[in-house]
Amino acid sequence: MNLRTALTYAVPTLVLTGAALLWSRPTPKAPPSSDAAIRRPRQIRCEGRVTTYPGADIILAPEYGGRLDTLAVQELDRVKPGQLLAQLDAREQTAALTAARAHIAELEAELRFLALEQTRQARLLKEGAVGQRAFDDSDSRLKLTLARVEAARAQVAQQEALLSKLTVRAPFGGTVVERMAHAGELLPAGAKLLRLADLDRIRVEAEVDEYDLSRLQVGSPVTVEAEGLTGTWAGKVEEIPEAVTQRRLKALDPSRPTDIRVAIVKVALAGHTPLKLGQRVELSIQAH
């Protein structure tokens, strides 16, 4: 076979092979647009728990120990500010206060007499009927008795303060959500008596993944729902913290990681809801 004949067969073969290789190469994909690359869900899904505003959920306890004489409320009772809730046995302190007040009355009577005596001694001194020493003695007794009156008044104030600490009153209006003691019990100082909460001042503490924080804004609309209750409730983001923390709520889905760091975002509820204090809820927050 001469050179011309060989070329005649080789050239078509090379052309067909090259075409097959070009055909078999994958077509390169166009790079995604920037909008598609960064597109993320418009709703941030998270979980949270119903709580109160600061200072609206407290445990009441007496500062001093003693026998619980009266516990005047039951669970779910609504109370007014200043209402008597509990009274420890205060018979000893009441008797001491009565004695201290009687002592003041006695000293004040003596003080009035000494004041009259000093006035009389001053007149006699001016007339020359008595010497300076007699007047000075009268003046000294008057000042000493005045000091004793002031000390007795301080003692009365101390007894009144002690007596008031044996009486527990409602610091604000609310609902007794838990009762932890019973009348007749001998309680140590600081023993828990009642849990009082203002259920008209509740909100939600939502645990938002730290990676979603950049898409949150104060005022963002929120939809709240709870297992076992029908319907949803509206709210809005009220406060975004400056720090993240470990997740507090145990994940309902066991496949979810437990070491997620979250921000405790405060959500204000719009109007009255049937949600209960401490109830677990699910939230959808409008992202930005």
Rank of each mutant, 00 (worst) to 15 (best):
A251S: 03
I260H: 08
V265G: 05
A268P: 06
P274C: 14
K276H: 12
K276P: 04
T258V: 11
H272N: 14
T245S: 13
H272I: 13
T245F: 04
R261M: 09
R261F: 07
A268E: 11
T258N: 14
Q246V: 10
T258S: 15
D253Y: 00
H272Q: 15
A263M: 03
G271F: 12
A270V: 12
V267Q: 06
G271L: 07
V267W: 01
A263E: 00
T273L: 04
L252Q: 10
I260T: 10
P257T: 02
A263I: 07
A251T: 09
K250G: 03
P254W: 03
I264V: 11
P274L: 13
H272V: 15
D253N: 15
T245C: 10
T245R: 09
L275R: 02
A263P: 05
R247I: 05
A268F: 05
I264M: 14
D253P: 15
R261T: 10
I260M: 12
D259G: 08
H272D: 15
Q246I: 08
P257G: 07
D253S: 09
L249N: 03
D253K: 01
K250C: 00
G271W: 11
V265N: 01
I260G: 01
D253M: 02
V262F: 05
P274T: 13
A270E: 14
R248K: 14
A270M: 11
R261Y: 07
R248A: 15
T245D: 09
P254T: 02
R256K: 14
A270Q: 14
R247A: 00
A270L: 13
V267F: 05
L249A: 03
R248F: 03
R247E: 05
V265Y: 02
I264F: 15
V267D: 05
V262Q: 03
V262G: 00
P254M: 06
P274G: 13
P274F: 11
V262M: 02
Q246S: 13
T258D: 15
H272Y: 11
P274D: 12
K250P: 01
A251D: 04
H272C: 08
S255L: 13
V267S: 06
T258L: 09
K276A: 14
V265R: 00
L249K: 09
S255W: 10
